[in-house]
Computed example of a mutant assay.
Amino acid sequence: MLYVLGDIHGQTAALDRALGLIEADGGADAPLIFLGDYVDRGPDSRGVLDRLIAGRDAQRPWRFLLGNHDRMFLRFVTEARNHDPRVLSGKGWLHPALGGNATLASYLPRDAFDHPEGGGIDTLARSGLDPLPDPHRDALVAAACEAVPQRHLDFVAGLATMIEDGPNLFVHAGIRPGVPLPEQAEDDLIWIRDGFLDHDGDYGRLVIHGHTALERPTHFGNRIDLDGGAGYGRPLVPALFDGNGWFTLHDDGRRPLTPP
């Protein structure tokens, strides 16, 4: 038995509910893979990372993948980088569409930053800050370096980009068709959409991923997308593989997850 959770995006209540469903179905020591994007958009990225690290430290059989939002968070705090070239719109991490503003707000005291629109962290959480002038960037990076626990940065820095398990391959975003697994680029593993989502060929393994938000987890035949949109307020739905097939977990129990 193997359980999987898609993108959490700072939603601690949704995470706690999903973990409760998994424990009710498979017990407290159920093996679980997290597909990445633990931070951004939701109100409590700090709380999500605290829960994941606590589970790891308690030696629960949990494995974790790196998401693109997790890497943006790490790079902002450790490298003062607010832009990722894979964001074609040019929006920075602190734009509300990306949600880094909500992540910082979960760590920083309310008076840790003077927002140019007035107010402090509350304004940042509500409105973001993009474009981000250098002086404001420097002030926010300095405040984040002081407020973000080193264990959170170390956790994100140590995340895997791919997990192979039996007939299944787990990644955050997807893989580049035609490229051998050892040669897959990290940027593709955490960002890819074009060339992956529209590919209907056989990958040799079923690819389990998140990253692209849908209304609900969906089986496409050669891949399963488990990002059900928790970052936008939709439920965080656990999935499980029982050795023969895939299911999603709900209050009323298991439901088969099969291709259309």
Rank of each mutant, 00 (worst) to 15 (best):
A125R: 15
A125F: 14
A125G: 14
A125H: 14
S127P: 01
S127D: 05
S127C: 04
S127I: 03
D130R: 03
D130L: 00
P131H: 00
P131Y: 01
L132P: 07
P133M: 07
P133E: 06
P133G: 06
P133W: 04
D134N: 02
D134E: 11
P135M: 09
P135Q: 02
P135Y: 02
H136T: 06
R137H: 06
D138M: 05
A139D: 13
A139P: 13
L140K: 11
L140M: 11
V141P: 12
A142P: 10
A143N: 11
A143S: 07
C145E: 13
E146L: 13
E146C: 12
A147F: 04
A147M: 09
P149A: 05
P149R: 03
Q150V: 03
Q150I: 01
Q150L: 08
H152R: 01
H152S: 02
D154E: 08
F155Y: 06
F155L: 03
A157S: 09
G158F: 02
G158Q: 08
G158V: 01
L159A: 04
A160R: 14
T161H: 11
M162H: 08
M162I: 10
I163C: 04
I163E: 07
I163F: 11
E164M: 08
E164W: 07
E164T: 06
D165W: 15
D165R: 13
G166Q: 09
G166V: 01
P167F: 08
P167L: 12
P167G: 13
L169T: 11
F170A: 11
V171W: 04
H172W: 12
H172Y: 05
H172C: 13
A173Q: 05
A173D: 06
G174F: 03
I175D: 00
I175V: 15
I175M: 01
I175A: 01
R176E: 02
P177H: 07
P177F: 01
P177D: 01
V179F: 00
P180M: 00
P180V: 00
L181C: 08
L181N: 05
P182T: 11
P182H: 09
E183K: 12
E183V: 11
E183P: 03
E186L: 12
E186Q: 13
D187R: 10
D187S: 15
D187G: 15
D187E: 10
D188K: 12
L189V: 07
L189P: 07
W191C: 10
R193C: 05
R193G: 03
D194L: 06
G195R: 07
G195E: 01
G195A: 08
F196K: 06
F196R: 03
D198H: 09
H199E: 13
H199K: 10
G201V: 09
G201N: 05
Y203L: 12
G204V: 04
G204P: 06
G204Y: 03
R205T: 03
R205Q: 13
R205P: 01
R205E: 10
L206S: 13
V207K: 06
V207N: 08
